[in-house]
Write a protein that binds this DNA or RNA. Structure first.
Length: 433
RNA sequence: GCCGGGGUCGCCUAGUGGUAUGGCGGCAGCCUGCUAAGCUGUUUAGCUAGUAAUGGCUUCUGUGGGUUCGAUUCCCACCCCCGGCGCCA
């Protein structure tokens, strides 16, 4: 069970976050249950102490060769009370469990209070928009014969794709470019499992995500019928971002202070059901069920949160600038910040076909939300503290491809290759596949 | 997938129904003139009293159940590791 102490320790901040997020989270119910639980626990411990003492007396008497039948019989009442106390406490615990995992994260002071889209705040705009408008990446790529949505729909369904020829090549070029750059910055490259057990997934994202975003990769239906909680917790879910596998990686570990920060660059596909986004971005590779992504992830000490948030964001911006994609940074408002995050900055790049900026990635700090649930600590001069976890997209491959294609499309139907990708592709222009 | 063996503190290890051994490492303290050693304590998580130093209690032998006054030990399910067989990019 999660330690509810962390809720009491951050009570004012959590209460404020609930209000600012306009969340319906039942904090007072949780606190009442927690108080009840602690009282019950004290009672239980008294009973256990009595039982332990009596058991020892029986043990001693037996060693002396005395008759112990009467002593054992006298314990029947205590045993019944103990069983009752135990089942009452587990009923209370499962109620707490169902609530406490979903406590919203505290909010960073710099998060604008309000609801989206009005309250989201643009804090920076970079680059000159060369193409104010133009054809969509779907039009450009279809004419070049590099994107096959129809056959993908036949084989896998809507929101899947086959990339061909030069486009598939550019996909790999982007990946190699992003991986090389992250490694040069000292981030350790990680290829994670693409499936994660439910009990760890619960620690990286709130339950809502399971219905809206995740594909279940195992059945476990028998266990579910039997309400075998432990077994259900072994169910596998496809990762919707490498972040989740990277966060769970060090679950139940304690770092020495000297080991932090740990900086990872994770590379993996991401699988998303995109439930609730029917009708949005249905064409092309902007919003798909499966895409590749290079993700940055940092475990750090509490006091280093802002330092590494800035570092992650700077890295992400560097990618946008080297690819010469005009973009802007948007701080998500309190009402738009993910449940498990304390602060999120999105970057949105210019899409000529939409005459607007669209999200390409985001940088977030989860503070200790994930580490409390995954039990990841560090030793701070003898004191155990929960680590802070931060994550930021390096490059979201397919979405970036869409953006590059639109911004780099030439009037003759071909697409120029961004300068930084030329060495990886061995060509400056992509043509019919 | 099947058949064996296993999982005990950060690491190694004993115990096979009756308060969980011992060592190494780490941390704290003490002692000591010789590059280090010795001695003592501590080394899971939580509830509770106190402003605090500190105390009381519970909990911890892969995880969850069961039997029992009492489970590391017996029973059931699951997870993971090692070996063998099978299957396989």
């Amino acid at each position: 069970m999660i330690n509810t102490k962390y809720v009491r320790d951050h009570l004012d901040e959590i209460r404020r976050a609930i209000k600012d997020r306009k969340s319906a989270f039942p904090l007072d119910e949780l606190l009442a249950l927690d108080e009840k639980w602690r009282g019950m626990r004290t009672d239980l411990q008294e009973l256990q102490a009595k039982r332990n003492k009596a058991s020892l007396e029986i043990s001693d008497a037996k060693k002396r060769g005395e008759e112990v039948k009467d002593k054992i019989a006298a314990l029947a009442d205590l045993k019944a009370k103990l069983d009752e106390a135990q089942s009452e406490i587990s009923r209370c615990e499962s109620k707490i469990e169902s609530i406490v995992w979903n406590v919203p994260n505290t909010l960073d002071n710099s998060v604008p209070i309000g609801m989206p889209p009005e309250a989201n705040k643009t804090i920076k705009t970079w680059g000159n928009i060369k193409k104010k408008e133009g054809p969509s990446h779907v039009e450009v790529l279809s004419k070049l014969g590099l994107l096959d949505e129809e056959r993908a729909a036949k084989v896998a369904g809507s929101r899947f794709f086959y990339l061909r020829g030069d486009l598939a090549l550019m996909e790999h070029a982007l990946e190699s470019y992003a991986i090389d750059k992250m490694r040069k910055k000292g981030y350790i490259l990680i290829s994670p499992p693409y499936m994660v057990k439910k009990r760890y997934y619960k620690g990286v994202a709130p339950f809502g995500v399971f219905e809206d975003a995740l594909y279940k990769a195992s059945e476990a239906s028998e266990a579910e019928k039997m309400k075998d909680i432990e077994h259900v917790d072994e169910e596998l879910f496809m990762i919707s971002t490498a972040e989740h596998a990277l966060a769970a990686m060090h679950a139940e570990e304690t770092f020495s202070g000297a080991e932090l920060p740990i900086k990872y660059a994770g590379f993996s596909p991401s699988f998303r059901r995109e439930a609730g986004s029917h009708g949005k971005d249905t064409k092309g590779i902007f919003r798909v069920h499966q895409f590749n992504k290079v993700e940055q992830f940092i475990y750090c000490k509490v006091e280093d949160e802002h330092k590494y948030f800035d570092e992650l964001l700077a890295n992400s911006e560097e990618f946008m600038q080297e690819l010469e994609l005009p973009y802007r940074l948007v701080v998500l408002s309190s009402g738009d910040t993910g449940h498990q995050m304390s602060k999120t900055i999105d970057w949105e790049a210019w899409f000529p076909s939409q005459k607007d900026y669209r999200e390409l990635g985001s940088c977030s700090t989860a503070r200790d939300w994930q580490s409390v649930r995954l039990d990841i600590k560090y030793d701070d001069k003898g004191e155990r503290k929960y680590v802070y976890t931060l994550n930021s997209t390096a490059i979201s491959i397919q979405r970036s491809l869409a953006c590059i294609v639109e911004n780099y499309a030439n009037s003759d139907g071909t697409v120029s290759v961004p300068k930084v990708l030329v060495p990886y592709m061995g060509k400056e222009i992509i043509t019919k596949g």
